[in-house]
Design a protein around this nucleic acid. Sequence first.
DNA 1: TCCAGGACTGAGCAAGCGCTTAGGGCTGTG
DNA 2: CACAGCCCTAAGCGCTTGCTCAGTCCTGGA
Lengths: 207, 207
Amino acid sequence: MGAERADEAAGEWAEVAPDAAQRLVGAAVEAFAERGYHATTTRDIAGRAGMSPAALYIHYKTKEELLYRISVTGHERALKIMAAAAGAEGTAADRLRCAVRAFASWHAERHTTARIIQYELKALSEEHYAEIADLRRKTDRLLREIIQDGADAGEFTVRDVPGTTLAVLSLCVDVARWFTADGKRTPDQVGELYADLVLGMVGARRP
Amino acid sequence: MGAERADEAAGEWAEVAPDAAQRLVGAAVEAFAERGYHATTTRDIAGRAGMSPAALYIHYKTKEELLYRISVTGHERALKIMAAAAGAEGTAADRLRCAVRAFASWHAERHTTARIIQYELKALSEEHYAEIADLRRKTDRLLREIIQDGADAGEFTVRDVPGTTLAVLSLCVDVARWFTADGKRTPDQVGELYADLVLGMVGARRP
DNA sequence: TCCAGGACTGAGCAAGCGCTTAGGGCTGTG
DNA sequence: CACAGCCCTAAGCGCTTGCTCAGTCCTGGA
């Protein structure tokens, strides 16, 4: 059962090779999301992947490296989603709706990965944290530019652009904390609801 | 230095007696918020409080009990804040503004305590968790009633009352994650900004 | 058939963990 | 002064942790 769920989680990590490394990262995502990084043991990760504890160290140098790989991949995906929305055609309102819908629903759909990348930052080494912080700043900047565009064009009514950006990002990120697959909302529904709420926040809700 | 900051944090826990127990809970809040529950050692807590590791066990049965005490106290404070706003005079918009302003600014002002009570729930024992979950449901219900009242009265435009309640609560809670005392916003400013954004979310922003 | 090389395991090390215990030094009361 | 009761420490127990290492198995080219 544990192994099956690990395989399922590994679907997100299909490009990781070899197979054993992929199973390990899938198992780590599952375990870190469930218990937290510090409460997860290397024995638990290896066990979920169907291997002995020592096997982990053939593919990853340390437990922290596993967290780092998960964190980089996750942040790159999140950044890509934001970049796609920011680079789309249309009004600022269109782009904001698209960005929030995609960003929030990703945090629901991939809530295990998202939980790790958002709430285990302090467990990263200093060098790794610096690298991740850079990706986070880029994501923030893309969203801020959309909101700034809307404010400049008179589409939005925003008193504090950086503050509003922070709030919108915060709202989407926190989806990873409360979302569960067995809840009554699908990821798409969360994205749709959140897009609507955010357009209200910037004073641009369609009638 | 460590001891001084522990004393400062203990100001929030002034009613805890005797003095040693108060210093310990202050030290625990500081340490849990900084490193997380699982990454904090009992030796670290005792050290910050200026005591030997064994002294902790005279005042608290386990490390988890310390977390539980912090969690109960914190949740009771948060509930009290929400209850005060919900029971106030005025329109639903007035009460919502008041609730969000107080709730968000509390999560900023007391971001160390808030971080623990919001992000370390899984470290609680099953019985303790059940108790805390009850307090959380009560807080949620109070906010939902404000939003429902506004929707019923036609003050708000809300398509999904439980979903919007969840989003508002989530937005306020997440303040504890990103807020730092050395940032450019004071807790009051965060409360003011957030109240404004939330009134936009429910389609009731003042002109 | 042989053997090189990568994947993997069983056993276990040093360090650190939560927590316990035996005992010492205060303080207030008689 | 005697001493009970509380608060606290030094020492350390039993266990788990992240990680290592010697050696086994398997695969594929010569």
